[in-house]
């Protein structure tokens, strides 16, 4: 008898998450001889994004892959993704979350009736502006910057003297166009397909965090599979995750060239500019819980 699982996520089917999810569905069918079927619902069409984690815990949907920041609402440890200036490159971040730290975050979900499956990657979190590039805190000072709710990122903006503005994603395009906000903190992989490149001028590649997705499943749904099916299922997840990692860097490069084509200036920090940001970042780290501080220390070594 065929088992059907609902996989709900909010990204467009064409985005890297959408493609990884579709590949995963294909692989599950292949490795379970069609005995497990994954129905993918992209674009947040099934449940509102803010509801995803709870809907999976409840069993209303079976598999979810929300932005890691959404997990902060049940486990503050997930804030580790958004510690400014902590990771040296998107590639290093991928290695970190493939290792012990990633496993710990996923294992913690068990207390919420969820089985953590994998961490999929998206892109680096950079600062974008409609005017001068945010190379130093001085430039950002006095600006209004849209950011998805995240304690460490909001704290970083405040420390630079900028006002962190929260605003629904659908309003950001207009807000940038009309000057309601002067910039955004997001990933190039989100900004490019959302066409924010049309209304933004600069991207500063200071690594404020890494965007990623926590893939999790209703624990009961997972247990409803036979041992054989579970094995095929997990194998599919492993391969889909590997594909995701292999694609991530390429996808970032593609998004950046898309932004460049729409006229965006891409700026890297000089060592001097980086030094100007470090005290602010360290102050943000100091505000974190002891558990996160321990993680920060591990990552820095």
């Amino acid at each position: 008898q065929e088992i059907v699982f609902k996989l709900a996520h909010e990204a467009p089917a064409t985005a890297i998450k959408g493609r990884t999810a579709d590949l995963f569905a294909e692989l599950v069918a292949k490795y379970t001889d069609g005995s497990v079927k994954i129905e993918v619902y992209p674009g947040g069409q099934l449940v509102p994004t803010v509801e995803e984690i709870r809907a999976a815990a409840r069993g209303q949907v079976d598999i979810i892959a929300p932005y890691t920041s959404y997990y902060s609402s049940i486990d503050p440890l997930w804030d580790i993704f958004y510690q400014p200036m902590l990771f040296s490159s998107p590639k290093q971040a991928m290695e970190v979350f493939s290792g012990e730290i990633g496993q710990k975050l996923l294992a913690n979900l068990e207390s919420r009736r969820l089985k953590g499956l994998a961490i999929w990657h998206d892109g680096p979190v950079y600062t974008f502006t409609t005017d001068k590039p945010a190379t130093t805190p001085d430039v950002l000072s006095g600006m209004k910057v849209r950011v998805a709710p995240s304690k460490p990122l909001e704290s970083m903006l405040s420390k630079a003297g900028a006002a962190p503005i929260s605003m629904p994603a659908t309003e950001v395009y207009l807000a940038l166009q009309q000057g309601t906000v002067d910039g955004v903190v997001t990933t190039p992989t989100y900004a490019a397909p959302a066409r924010w490149g049309e209304v933004l001028k600069t991207m500063t590649r200071a690594l404020w965090g890494v965007g990623g997705y926590g893939v999790a499943m209703n624990a009961k749904s997972f247990a409803s599979m036979s041992a054989e099916q579970q094995e095929g299922f997990l194998r599919a997840m492993k391969e889909a995750t590997e594909w995701n990692q292999a694609q991530t860097l390429e996808n970032i490069a593609k998004s950046e060239s898309m932004l460049k084509e729409s006229g965006m200036t891409i700026v890297d920090l000089t060592d001097e500019q980086k030094a100007a940001w470090m005290p602010l970042a360290e102050a943000v780290w100091a505000e974190q819980s002891d558990d996160i501080k321990a993680m920060i220390d591990t990552i820095r070594q």
């Binding site: 467009p12 674009g43 659908t170 395009y173 207009l174 397909p193 066409r195 049309e198």
Partner: peptide
Amino acid sequence: IPLIVYGMVAETSIA
């Protein structure tokens, strides 16, 4: 708003 969402999904210029 529907056109903004369309632009995001279809990856066409919102302008």
